[in-house]
Amino acid sequence: MEAIWFMVFSTFETLAIYSLIMTLLRFKTTEYIWQALLVMILANLQSYIMRNELSLDFLAPLITVMIFVFLFSAIIKIPVIWSAICTIIGYMFYALIQTAYLTTVFGSINAIQTDPAKGYILQVLSGATGLLISWLMYRFGIGFKYDLEKLRIKFEHILLIALIIVVLILIAILFYLNRLWLHLLFFGITFGIFLYYAINTEERESYDHRRTVRADSGEDQTSGS
């Protein structure tokens, strides 16, 4: 019975993360939902095995992030670098939501570790909040508007790839240390860094597009004269 409850609440939780990432990419949550649910169930199954059978619970979030990257790059066909960026932003945003509830409502990680019911309540609160935020974001058109196909891996992304690898390693270390204040600090800083990079890239692409349009317009006027 414990395994069933774990799968139900974890799937609700990963659905919220998936929804946040899809909204960031300006996709509707229901797009690719059946493929996503299959991937989520597999991700949660591996998470249960790693947590309860292998005692490697600190590695479970790392593998979940990597599975999400695979989902967006291989199935939804988002360039892999942006699959990783948006997955990390969405995951860190959700982690911030959950850490906020953990701090304000439950007080400590030990409180939910000793009482599974509190852990399920935390997942429901966090998941419902994540789904609500993603719905509001989609409704008001909040997300990245640039053409992702133009943003395939370039030279400048070598450092970004290295940063993503470091972040994935740090996620595993963070959950191994199991310190609430470290969670809040790490999730907040990482979310800020990747969000800043994504917004800055969008602004640059928008600026380049306007320059190209102006240049083409000038050429057309010259040809016409």
Rank of each mutant, 00 (worst) to 15 (best):
W82Y: 08
G143E: 08
F140N: 15
D115C: 02
I97V: 15
R51E: 09
A100E: 06
Y48I: 02
E53M: 14
K145H: 14
G127F: 08
L136P: 12
S55Y: 13
R139V: 04
L136F: 14
L136Y: 11
T64W: 00
F144T: 05
S134E: 03
G141F: 06
A111C: 04
I85H: 02
S73Q: 07
L96W: 10
G127M: 04
T114E: 15
R139Q: 12
G143Y: 07
N52M: 12
F70M: 08
A60D: 03
R139A: 13
M50C: 00
L125Q: 11
I121N: 07
I133H: 09
T104I: 13
T114V: 08
Y101V: 06
F68R: 03
T64M: 06
I49T: 10
N52H: 15
K118T: 01
G119H: 11
F72M: 02
F93W: 09
G107I: 07
V65Q: 06
I97R: 08
L71Q: 09
L71T: 02
E53Y: 14
Y138M: 12
Q98A: 11
L125K: 08
I75E: 10
L96C: 15
S134D: 09
T99P: 13
L125F: 13
F144N: 04
I85T: 05
I81D: 00
T103S: 14
I76C: 03
M92I: 00
F68V: 04
L62N: 10
L131F: 10
Y91T: 06
I88E: 04
S73W: 04
R51C: 10
P116C: 06
I109P: 07
A60S: 15
A117W: 05
M92H: 07
Y138N: 15
L122I: 04
D115P: 00
F68A: 08
K77T: 05
F106I: 05
G127W: 04
T103E: 06
